[in-house]
Nucleic acid binder design. Structure first.
Lengths: 317, 317
DNA sequence: TTTGCTCATGGGCAATTACTCACCTTCAGG
DNA sequence: CCTGAAGGTGAGTAATTGCCCATGAGCAAA
């Protein structure tokens, strides 16, 4: 304490101050008087100890690993927000965990006092999330669907989540009275020109936050299973490099939307701006690995809710 | 996540808040808004995480003064290893600081790749140290208790640390199904002859490293407070020159085990060899000064974790 | 000796955090 | 159905901390 100018002495002091502060739990004032320096100097020593990484903080809880993964993924892909839930090794479900997390995130947005536009896509995961929502009243908000609600056979599409959402959430909601895929680009233009559709599209473009499922391709993927695409169309798509889809918009391994006849027939609204709004993708599981990776690489989404296994894949890949 | 009342969910939230606060360095306001709760609730979660010991802080820096003291003490008493942590002038705690240091030392031993036998004694300080341990998996190691786990009233003794240790450390552990003191030397022989006890005793004799608390005597000392000895027995002991105890083994001012009826009734295993293994005593504080000095003088231990004040006392005395 | 630079210091102040209090829900037991 | 305990909540407030700034010491180059 007599000599101050040696650098090592200063680090020693920093260590001592840091110890008193973090381990012993004293205030900076107490440290200052016990070391015979001013409070400000004590503060500097404490922050020096932190800056020099003399102080190591550890959190002993399974959730810590998830948070670290989330942070790493967020940084690697420059995402706005990433949430990672623990993987459940015993379950093959593609929704358990992330559905609850997504529901919590939806709830947080809906509880905001200022009016927002919340857009939703489609998919089983998103449906599961919406099913977790409690009853909420939020007359200020608007909820809009990006995708059509008409299945290939003309019935109401089951996985159009906006209706499930309307059950729980009291807000104005805007479905999209269209099929998911139409027969041609021209038909899409015509339909999108209708007044009702056009106003819904305009609302969707203003979305503050968007929740979308991320679908894998393949003959077991949702586009085939739900009958939107025939098996041979799917094979053709995959030959062209397609690996995943969001709201029917098909993209390749780098997350670029494909320039092909299928995408020309997608009647969904465009995915809202990733520059000016938050677009949260939801998905996990081995079959979706490539699709999720492509979606984050190509910035089709700028936020992600997934599980540990998937997050680890994203970091390794 | 819709329902919040689950206790485990609350701890998860605490962990999350603690991580965001200490690891990610966010403010409580940011945490509050990102978790959708009020700032006060965020603050509560953070302090809950601290209170539940989810957050562990460690300081990685050899403070010069402490190092010098440690070296001097090590030489003076021919010890294998001495660790000195800064004293906290304002605190009367007998564990703060050394508990963290002891936990770090235990962790270092447990992280060794080669299989070891780690023995533990008893005491509040050791308990506090073990409570600082993170979760570790080390199936190669064995952990054995030197002292019985049965209190005078027949219940499980609280300060038998091996059970706390088993919570954090995944390793085979061997408790000692005995009281600390039995009624006579003969009873001890009988009990020690039991197969279960004998094998535990054999393991303890092979210990590579042992961690023991150092207890002071007196009517406020642990032996009396925990009901192992009556006040008059204690007075008698002290009249005979006893100054401290380790695992119940009572020794005099020079660290020699007393040849008296009490030590004949101690059911603990013998302290493992100070020739062939490392026996680390943990303790600090004025009330323990004489006991610690006696323990190092008599080589009841061959390594010590203590604080500056105690180290200075040991050098002067 | 002067000049110019770096760096630690303490004061002051705004931001952040901890604590207390009154109230509100939940739930077990009468 | 009421009641009281336990535990959670937000508001308000006091305590603590982080940061900017002007100052001055130390030191090397001019």
């Amino acid at each position: 304490m007599v000599r101050k100018s040696e650098t090592s002495g200063r680090l020693d002091d920093a260590a001592r101050a840091g110890w008193l502060y973090y381990v012993a739990g004293r205030t900076q004032d107490e440290i200052a008087s016990s070391m015979g320096i001013s409070r400000q100097s004590a503060q500097r020593l404490v922050s020096l100890a932190v800056a020099e990484r003399l102080i190591k903080v550890r959190l002993d809880h399974p959730i810590a690993a998830c948070l670290e993964l989330a942070d790493a993924v967020r940084k690697k892909f420059s995402l706005k927000h990433v949430e990672v839930v623990p993987s459940d090794p015993g379950s093959s479900s593609t929704t358990v965990g992330i559905a609850e997390a997504a529901a919590a995130e939806i709830e947080r947005w809906l509880k905001r006092p200022d009016p927002i536009v919340l857009a939703v896509g489609t998919g089983r995961t998103l449906k599961a999330a919406v099913d977790q929502l409690p009853a909420i009243e939020c007359p200020n908000h608007r909820i809009v669907s990006l995708t059509g609600n008409i299945a290939p056979d003309g019935s109401a599409a089951y996985y159009n989540v906006i209706f499930s959402m309307a059950d729980a959430v009291k807000a104005r909601h805007f479905p999209m009275p269209l099929p998911v895929l139409v027969t041609s680009a021209e038909e899409r233009e015509t339909l999108h020109g209708q007044q009702l559709v056009r106003s819904t599209l305009e609302i969707s473009a203003q979305a503050d936050v968007t929740f979308v499922g991320i679908g894998e391709l393949g003959i077991d993927g949702p586009l085939c299973v739900d009958g939107f695409l025939e098996k041979d169309e799917m094979m053709e798509l995959m030959r062209n490099g397609a690996v995943g889809e969001i709201c029917g918009w098909v993209f390749d391994g780098e997350g670029k939307l494909l320039d092909n006849p299928i995408n020309e027939r997608v009647a969904s609204a465009s995915i809202p701006s990733r520059e000016s709004s938050t677009v949260i993708g939801i998905g996990k599981g081995k079959r979706k690995f490539k699709a999720i990776k492509a979606a984050v690489m190509g910035h089709q989404i700028n936020a992600l809710i997934t599980d540990e296994d998937t997050a680890e894949y994203l970091l390794k890949a």
